[in-house]
């Protein structure tokens, strides 16, 4: 279980969508792509709303002089919050295109739709104009800057200090993991044979990205469960690892076969029903692995990571 957006609300994201004179578009947001792929998602949303090719969208997010405000890339918020801002901005830009096209097609704006790189009268392919023609006429003929603006912020939530009662998040996504392990009772080594991850994401905006994020997060979960410990003699700082040989994040050899299954229970307000799952992908594999170890050999490892030493000690204690 994980929320989208900052707990307590009040986190803003803005977006600008500019339609160029040839009908291509530039979407500008202030959130960072830390590898999760938000540039792809913002380009997809812009293309979807404007009815243009994904390849015709450029994404700019690289400085504060040019990009609008975003609180940042954390709290699994970017697809949801920036996604809503981008959708609003693209709809705003599309509204300007419709103003132009309504004059050109001699119809009202609400009769129009944007699809297949055209602005056309809904359901009437004969009354259609290429979007580049509309954008060009709007820019040069009508002296317009086809710039759409969007801003999404969930209101800050009031909180009762005694009960903690509040409505702190946009939506919740759900996940569960299943692990099969083999425990070597001689050495204490645990091999993860199989890991299955099941998610509700609201809407799978880009299934390839989603699967990558699930596998990547699960790998992080495997690391936290099996090998990573910044303070191996916790709470002391002794022998703290200072290189990636000693601080053991999983290698490809440590990662089991992974499969994922996606469910779409739409969020009520997210873009196209989407929910954010960026962070939670690291959460469920760890307990699944620990529970599988118990299922295999009857010990509980409640102090992570489940190193061979801890497994052997627990087996000893159980045998005694």
């Amino acid at each position: 279980m994980y929320p989208s957006g900052m707990s307590g609300g009040g986190d803003s994201s803005q977006a600008m969508v500019k339609v160029q004179p040839d009908g291509s578009a530039v979407v500008t947001v202030g959130s960072c792509d830390i590898g999760q792929g938000c540039k792809t998602i913002m380009a997809q949303i812009t293309a979807e709303v404007l009815g243009i090719d994904y390849e015709a969208v450029k994404v700019v997010n690289d400085d504060t002089d040019n990009c609008p405000l975003s609180f940042g890339t954390f709290a699994s918020r970017v697809t949801y919050v920036d996604g809503l801002a981008t959708k609003l901005a693209a709809e705003d830009a599309r509204r300007i295109l419709f103003e132009v096209a309504a004059v050109m097609l001699e119809c009202s704006e609400d009769e129009l739709e944007a699809i297949d790189n055209q602005i056309r009268v809904k359901g009437n392919p004969d009354k259609a104009l290429p979007i580049g023609e509309v954008a060009g006429a709007g820019t040069f003929g009508m002296r317009k800057l086809i710039l759409g603006l969007g801003h999404y912020m969930r209101d800050p939530a009031a909180m009762d200090p005694e009960t903690g009662e509040c409505d702190p998040f946009c939506t919740l996504a759900w996940a569960a993991s299943y692990a099969e392990v083999e425990v070597d009772t001689e050495t204490g080594e645990v091999e993860i044979l199989r890991l299955v991850n099941s998610y509700d994401v609201g809407k799978a905006m880009n299934p390839t990205h989603l699967e990558g994020q699930i596998d990547g997060g699960a790998t992080m979960g495997v690391g936290a469960a099996m090998s990573e410990n910044l303070h191996p003699f916790y709470p002391s700082l002794d022998f703290q690892p200072d290189n990636l040989g000693d601080y053991a994040i999983p290698t490809t050899m440590d990662v089991p076969d992974m499969e994922s299954v996606i469910y779409e229970c739409p969020s009520t307000n997210g873009p196209y029903g989407a929910k954010g799952i960026g962070e939670m992908t690291a959460n469920t594999p760890g307990p699944a692995i620990v529970n599988a170890i118990h299922d295999a050999v009857g010990i509980w490892i409640t102090n992570l990571p489940a190193t061979p030493e801890k497994v052997l000690r627990a087996l000893d204690a159980k045998g005694a």
Partner: peptide, 17 residues
Amino acid sequence: TKRILNSVAVIEVLQNL
């Protein structure tokens, strides 16, 4: 925190798993 849930799929996620 008494947030009422309207988009819930814990059971379905477990069934799929």
